[in-house]
Nucleic acid binder design. Structure first.
Length: 420
RNA sequence: GUGGUUGUAGCUCAGUUGGUUAGAGCGCCUGGUUGUGGCCCAGGAGGUCGGGGGUUCGAGUCCCCUCAUCCACCCCA
């Protein structure tokens, strides 16, 4: 088993389980274009600085979760731990920097060197969307609406939408000062993580879950009250638009999120069927700084975790869509028949039929067993007798009935019988 | 990175206080029909008991290390 196991935190997706992945991807390709979004494909790795500057040097992800390596040209590269920074790197070369808008989505693997657990892998997959270049509360709300629309399409219900504002970058200082003043009194009684957060990123104290910290956190000052009137109004407007779209949400003042690029709206979508890692999607408005650039790329977006969507669907008992197209098994009795079957299979496939042809001269019994095992709709049997008479026998696997058919009309016969 | 859990056949798992050639069910292969599947019956193939070291006359079983798994913390999707 170890010999066939992939590296820790990764997994193989076999043909038997691919259908539900297609379902998630097909739904994205169906829903997102309705909102004007098109797919963008960026590299799986970027210059390391793209993430260091983009996500923030002090974030957990950058500090200890990135797969960073040097390539043969001595460049420091990093496997993308999330999608936004790379997308912004690509967007920076377009007219979004002049206030024009672009709407893109992406699908693909992300990489983080964490200890695997339920709903957490080292290579995991996200579907993300980014509305880049403009600032408007309506866009934030529409982004969330599109997320809910997508979840509805793939049958996920029972989610909780948590939303909060982080204010503008210029709002941070006064709020941070207030937090620091408040927590400095009680920091000694808080958990070790919070002690380092106090210096590194005081905001993150707010969503600490350690019991010994809860009492202090609950009485902490309302940071939003330190934000500018414009920022507060922006958030009120986002909520108002969500209301007008009949989207249910809960304002969670302690929702901070771990990536430094967020400003104004942040949100998270959780599902009860998942275990400790219960967020299936998260996002918000951001200002992403790229290397050698003083001006950030701005936008709003989110990412959904595909593995977690799959877990949620399983918890909800949403049936994985299965492929019901008929499969035909070509049984060949004798070397001649097997030779005859290869081009015959080609003709059937050219006509759009799914065909598996046996290539070994096995017993009839073994070949019928094989036909049964692959779930063949019908077996096409060919042997010396049939070759002599220029016919093949089509055996309906469900009814058990057999029919002689000419090889020339076989494709048409199978289509008319089994493909409605 | 910290803690705990588990690791025996392709899969799900038994394996008694350490005792000869390690088992079951499912799956797979062959046969029971000169060329006919599913059900049934009979045979068969398949395992360095995750790996390494140690204790012992003897280790799947006990001890240490290591690798991997799953889960929780941290953090995130």
């Amino acid at each position: 088993m170890a010999k066939s196991a992939p590296p820790p935190g990764t997994s193989d997706i076999f043909p038997e389980e691919i259908a539900s992945w297609y379902c998630l991807e097909d739904a994205a390709r169906k829903i997102f274009p309705l909102y004007g979004f098109g797919e963008l494909r960026t590299p799986v790795f970027e210059y390391t600085e793209v993430f260091q500057r983009g996500l923030g040097d002090d974030t957990e992800v950058v500090q200890k979760e990135m797969y960073t390596f040097e390539d043969r040209g001595g460049r420091s590269l990093t496997l993308r731990p999330e999608g936004t920074a790379g997308v912004m790197r690509a967007m920076a070369g377009t007219d979004v920097m002049n206030g024009n808008e672009r709407r893109v989505y992406y699908v693909g693997p992300m990489f983080r060197g964490e200890r695997p657990a339920a709903g957490r892998k080292r290579q995991f997959h996200q579907i993300g969307v980014e509305n880049v270049g403009r600032v408007a509360p309506e866009l934030d709300a529409e982004c969330i609406a599109m997320l809910m629309h997508y979840l509805e399409e793939i049958g996920i219900t029972g989610t909780r939408l948590l939303i909060n504002t982080r204010g503008a970058l210029s709002d941070r200082k006064p709020a941070e000062d207030a937090l620091r003043e408040y927590f400095s009194a009680g920091i000694d009684s808080m958990c070790d993580d919070c002690k380092t957060r106090f210096d590194k990123n005081i905001w993150r104290i707010l969503d600490c879950k350690a019991p010994e910290c809860q009492e202090l956190i609950e009485k902490a000052p309302d940071v939003v009250s330190f934000f500018s009137e414009e920022s507060q109004e922006y958030f009120r407007k986002v909520c108002a638009v969500l209301d007008s779209l009949n989207i249910n949400y809960e304002i969670e003042p302690r929702l901070v999120r771990g990536l430094d690029y967020y400003v104004h709206t942040v949100f998270e979508l959780t599902h009860p069927g998942l275990g400790a890692q219960n967020a299936i999607a998260g996002g918000g408005r951001y200002e992403v700084f790229l290397p050698d650039s003083k001006k950030p790329v701005i936008g709003v977006g989110y990412a959904v975790g595909m593995e977690r969507l799959l877990m949620a669907r399983e918890a909800l008992g949403v049936a994985a869509s299965e492929d019901n197209t008929p499969v035909f098994y070509l049984a060949g009795l004798g070397e001649k028949a097997i030779e005859f079957n290869m081009p015959l299979a080609g003709k059937l496939r050219a006509a759009g039929l799914k065909v598996v042809a046996e290539v070994e001269n096995k017993s009839m019994k073994a070949q019928m067993r094989a036909a049964n095992r692959i779930g063949a709709t019908a077996a096409v049997i060919c042997g010396d007798n049939e070759l002599e008479n220029n016919i093949v026998i089509v055996k309906d696997m469900e009814k058990g009935e057999q029919q002689e058919v000419s090889p020339e009309t076989l494709a048409d016969y199978l289509k008319s019988q089994y493909c409605s």
